[in-house]
Nucleic acid binder design. Structure first.
Length: 472
RNA sequence: GUCCCGUUCAUCUAGAGGCCUAGGAUAUCGCCCUUUCACGGCGAGUACAGGGGUUCGACUCCCCUACGGGACGCCA
């Protein structure tokens, strides 16, 4: 048996991390077993499905590298097939027409809730024949009465549901469109899906689907309901928790490999291992090892992984990804030092590409103003002498190189009989405008001789103003 | 309310009856390295929801309670 899994999102929004993880698990499972992975768009809700959402989902899948062997298959293209099955169900007595108004159903629901019972359809139209068979109606699946339905779940084991808890669900709306529980069953059956891996918000749908499958004399697939992802506060993940859209993580400077690695470890583990390449995930992943309990999304750990992958990546690759982020800050990285060199200098210092762009602007343009704290601490009148000396030394360098810069700083420190830090730190603030930067040599080198001298002059002017202020 | 699922450090998790004085990772806090910030190294604190069983022995098995989540749509 060839393993066939699917990811079946409804196009009513962007691809969020919960869906992305489900997709990842399904994808990994198919890849691990040399099977196929199908992408199916569940767009039967004509009102809420949008083309933008379809694009957003496709874009997210592509960015994450979750390629599919079949699809995207759109359910709206398969209405004919669903109707065929519905007719079959009707003919076999497994379904019936229901003419109940929404008002009646709402009322029914309310009374049931008030009586503290589970809201269910009361089978009114099964007992009473309508006078006009062609009047507007929906079609309901006739759920078996009595007995249990057993859902065999790879993650949770056998779960029994009493048929009496289930009601006769609508499989076709008044407008003629089929509903989720019907389409999912027909598709999984037609597409020979062997393993249905999905969020456990679908766990309660499973028994209904098994019943429909039985009515169709079809074998149910193997189910695996993965627990949901919660926000960092333990509540259901929502926009309120920050980025939940996969594409937003890209915008915020995350690498897909970091997100993938983070997601695979959410609810799944392989001993103590934290870092997984795609190949490792593929070979090690197993549904059996997925946890039953829901987990909370923790951005800090994602950031750690992101930093890890930024650190490990090829600088050129990072440079390509970083360029657009610099662009957003109004910087053209082709005008200035080699971006790859900048990346090499910053690689260990950023959690995200956005952060890296932010701490790299001074390589390309003069800072707007000094970081107040850093200036206050380092650009003091006592630093003026060293600053002047170092300016002179730097100005005298003929071939601008890290070595030459290093020697210049060394010499000044030696001449003044102070530690290197006494010279380097004020110099750093003078050149980059803030307290932190990569090593002083590489920083000055990449900033360039001319810009360095210009900025040192600016710092000296700042110190002078300050000295006068203190004096008066 | 009814049904379903779940519960190990703040967070992600290891743990398949004795290996557990419960391990790792992130975060936090120290120390070291150091020209800053990072990186790296070393170290610290923090958890088996509670109560009953079963057993020579329970984080591991069973039951109850509490808490959390999900479902109850002419949404998926």
């Amino acid at each position: 048996m060839t393993v066939r899994t699917r990811f079946a999102p409804s196009p009513t929004g962007y691809l969020h991390v919960g869906g992305a993880r489900t997709a990842l698990f399904s994808w990994l499972y198919a890849r691990k077993h040399g099977g196929q992975f199908v992408l199916r768009i569940e767009d039967t809700d004509l009102e809420r499905s949008t083309a933008e959402s379809v694009n957003a989902i496709l874009e997210g899948m592509t960015w994450m590298g979750l390629d599919y062997d079949e699809g995207p298959i759109f359910q709206t293209d398969r209405f004919e097939r669903y109707n065929e099955i519905i007719q079959q169900l009707l003919d076999d007595g497994h379904a019936y027409k229901c003419y109940c108004s929404k008002d009646r159903l709402d009322e029914l629901r309310e009374t049931q809730m008030a009586n503290k019972v589970k809201p269910r359809y009361d089978g009114h139209c099964l007992k009473n024949k309508a006078e006009d068979a062609d009047a507007p109606h929906v079609i309901r699946f006739r759920n078996p009465v009595g007995g249990d339905v057993v859902v065999n779940d790879l993650i949770r084991g056998k779960i029994a549901f009493s048929n009496d808890e289930l009601d006769d669900l609508i499989i076709r709306r008044t407008d003629g469109s089929p509903t989720y529980n019907l389409t999912v069953v027909v598709d999984d059956m037609d597409m020979n899906i062997t393993h249905v891996i999905r969020g456990d918000d679908h766990l309660n749908n499973a028994p209904r689907q098994v019943n429909i499958l039985k009515a169709l004399a079809a074998e149910p697939p193997i189910y695996a309901h993965v627990p949901m992802i919660l926000g960092d506060d333990g509540s259901r993940l929502s926009k309120r928790h920050g980025a939940v859209s996969v594409m937003q993580y890209r915008e915020e400077g995350f690498l897909p490999e970091a997100l993938l690695n983070y997601l695979v470890r959410l609810g799944w583990s392989n001993g103590d291992q934290e870092i997984f390449s795609i190949d490792e995930m593929t070979s090690l992943f197993d549904i059996d090892d997925v946890n039953k309990a829901p987990s909370s999304f923790n951005t800090e750990k994602l950031e750690w992984l992101n930093q890890h992958y930024i650190k490990e990546a090829d600088p050129e690759h990072i440079a390509n990804l970083l360029a657009p982020h610099l662009g957003k800050l109004g910087i053209d990285p082709t005008q200035g030092p080699d971006l790859i060199k900048v990346v090499e200098a910053q690689q260990e210092r950023a959690n995200t590409l956005v952060e890296m762009a932010d701490i790299s602007t001074f390589f390309y343009e003069d800072y707007k103003e000094f970081d107040e704290k850093a200036a206050k601490k380092n650009l003091r009148p006592v630093a003026a002498e060293a600053m002047k000396k170092i300016r002179e030394a730097l100005a005298g360098i003929e071939t601008w190189s890290e070595d030459a810069i290093h020697s210049a700083i060394d010499d000044v420190a030696a001449a003044l009989e102070v530690k290197m830090g006494k010279v380097a730190q004020p110099l750093r603030v003078a050149v980059v405008g803030r307290a932190a930067s990569p090593g002083i040599d590489i920083t000055l080198f990449l900033v360039g001789q001319e810009a360095c001298l210009r900025r040192i002059d600016r710092a000296l002017a700042y110190i002078e103003v300050r000295a006068n202020e203190t004096a008066s």
